[in-house]
């Protein structure tokens, strides 16, 4: 879901353990406690605490937490929706999924897609972190590479798939360059996932570059100046200054990418349209779940139970991968 593309941002800050300064901040914001007028002020403030908080909290509990738990419960059932027979089936949905080749291939595709695009984005971001600081027009570059991130993934998917269609611009240009050997039926079932990964990298990389560059901006310029005086070139500066000092933000970015990558959906759907079914080779977990919830374009029977189980599995993968990226980034505590 796109909402969470942004929404997960700050969460990752928390998840990556960047929240430590918070308690000291909180203390600083409330010196009134100890002040002369503290008592009366606190009472007045405490009176409006619940009226301000409760509307949001009630909506959150009733429409977020309860549905999430409901979904978890449904993953242990077999159901095709309201008006059909409902049955508890225990773990059968889960065992069924892990013995289904269709599910396993979407599971594998999702992991491959998240890993490959993640590595590609990381390499691109490293390249940007090496040179962008000292490149002329760097703020213009940042704005320009960020643009694909704000474009609807559906529009990205449509445009990129059109570029790669058999008579599309990519094949035409390859033909004009005399590289006919490189022409491919890019959108054929066996190639489509690779094209989708290219499109996804293109659309997402700018966000991570901007994010990591904001961490680079926080590094005192004097560090780079003294490194330069000592004769360190840009690669060495990256290796010994930028990389260690942006480690926290890199781990935040990794967490963010994991959260976003696992639920890749729109861009894949946009490659095939609502009428078609994405080929097995290109299905992600989110697409597979969507097909099970709706029963697929052919109007099959919805499989609510197993679809709910996919939702639970995706939550578990997300949490595991978040913990993993935290572990990796915390390997070497850094001292300044």
């Amino acid at each position: 879901m796109t909402i969470a593309r942004h929404s997960s941002a700050t969460d990752a800050g928390r998840l990556a353990g960047l929240e430590e300064p918070e308690s000291s901040l909180r203390d600083r914001s409330r010196p009134s406690r100890r002040g002369r007028i503290g008592g009366a002020l606190d009472r007045a403030r405490r009176r409006i605490y619940l009226p301000l908080l409760l509307p949001a909290l009630i909506v959150y509990v009733v429409l977020f937490i309860v549905p999430a738990l409901y979904g978890m419960a449904l993953s242990f059932s077999s159901w095709a929706g309201l008006g059909t027979t409902f049955r508890w089936v225990g773990l059968k949905n889960y065992t069924g999924l892990f013995s289904s080749p269709v599910f396993l291939s979407s599971f594998w595709n999702t992991l491959v897609l998240t890993a490959v695009v993640g590595i590609a984005i990381f390499l691109i971001a490293c390249g940007a972190m090496i040179v962008l600081r000292t490149t002329k027009g760097h703020s213009f570059i940042r704005s320009a590479v960020f643009v694909p991130f704000i474009i609807s993934p559906i529009a990205i998917g449509l445009s990129v798939s059109f570029l790669f269609n058999p008579n599309g611009l990519i094949n035409t240009v390859l033909g004009l360059l005399g590289l006919d050997g490189l022409q491919r039926p890019w959108l054929a079932a066996d190639n489509i996932l690779q094209v989708i990964m290219v499109g996804l990298t293109w659309s997402a990389a700018g966000f991570y570059v901007v994010l990591l560059m904001s961490a680079v901006d926080g590094i005192p310029a004097s560090f780079y100046e003294s490194a330069q005086i000592e004769g360190a070139n840009l690669l060495q500066q990256f290796r010994h200054i930028t990389l260690p000092l942006t480690r926290d933000m890199i781990s935040v970015a990794a967490v963010l990418w994991v959260i976003a990558g696992i639920k890749t959906f729109e861009i894949i759907i946009a490659f095939t349209g609502t009428a078609g079914t994405p080929p097995l080779q290109a299905r992600s977990l989110a697409v597979e779940q969507y097909l099970r919830v709706t029963g697929g374009p052919a109007g099959g029977i919805p499989q609510m139970g197993s679809a709910a189980a996919i939702g639970v599995i995706m939550t578990i993968i997300t949490v595991v991968l978040i913990l993993l990226s935290r572990r990796i980034s915390r390997r070497e505590p850094l001292e300044m």
Binding site: T10, D11, F64, Y70, A286, M304, A307, T315
Partner: peptide, 29 residues
Amino acid sequence: IVSLFSAGMSVPFQAFAVPMVLISVGLSR
């Protein structure tokens, strides 16, 4: 309570897909 809200951010949308469809149909009926 802040932790409760922020925990919600690591739950992927797909955890809601099924309950959302059922609640929507039920609510409209």
